[in-house]
Amino acid sequence: MSLYQDLKYAISDGVCYAAQGVTPEGFAAYCPRYIDGFLVTLELLLLSSALGLSIGTLVAVARVSRQRALRTAAWAWSYVFRGTPLLVQLWIVYYGLGSLGPEKLGILWPFFKSGWAVGLAVLTINTSAYIAEILRGGIGTLPPGQLEAALSCGMSRGMAMRRILLPQAFRVAWPAYGNELILLMKGSALVSTITVMDLMGQTRSVFARGYSLETYMYSAVLYALLALLLTAGLRAVEKRLRVA
């Protein structure tokens, strides 16, 4: 077991030890499982949102590119991944592409082998499509004179994008991005259908032991708590953006 894994287990044991007595009995009995799962959910969320933001930005820039092929490719990216359900995307990659097996997938197999890696990749791609759309909308709200002014000052298109347009687009798009982050968190629960033991996966395991609805309620509270934390964090950033 890796050090990182041990650390995660230590955290959840610690949390559960501290929460003893103040949490309901039905929760306390399986507490480490919920928190183990919670940490996996958190980890997937942080990684996929960071990666998705980078890819989404690239796609958004491609959408306003002067090259038609690039524009079309970026449009198709957003269209396909926003037009199909996340669950379908997860199953296409895990059960569909994965069924081709190690012989056909070759060096890609270690990726397809892992439910966690597939989950992370699909969540990343899915959120990148939405982020690209949000950012494109943000860029669209800026007056076209800004780009012209930047170009006439001798900036390259790339530099104008990085220095002038994107920072403003981010500020405009921030609230919408916040919504997308919450949606991503909720969507991440679907990785439990491809064997990942995230919060939802653990919850379903615990549910199978006693068929008690409580199980789902505890998990719902944990998810709602995470959503509240995210919302608070996003608000704080938004305030700073406004001051700047």
């Binding site: 994965g98 190690p102 197999w109």
Partner: peptide, 16 residues
């Protein structure tokens, strides 16, 4: 854990 036994067979066969 798999939702169906069939799905677990498939993953065993694939070598996951």
């Amino acid at each position: 854990l798999y939702d169906t036994l069939t799905a677990s067979f498939t993953d065993l066969e694939a070598g996951r």
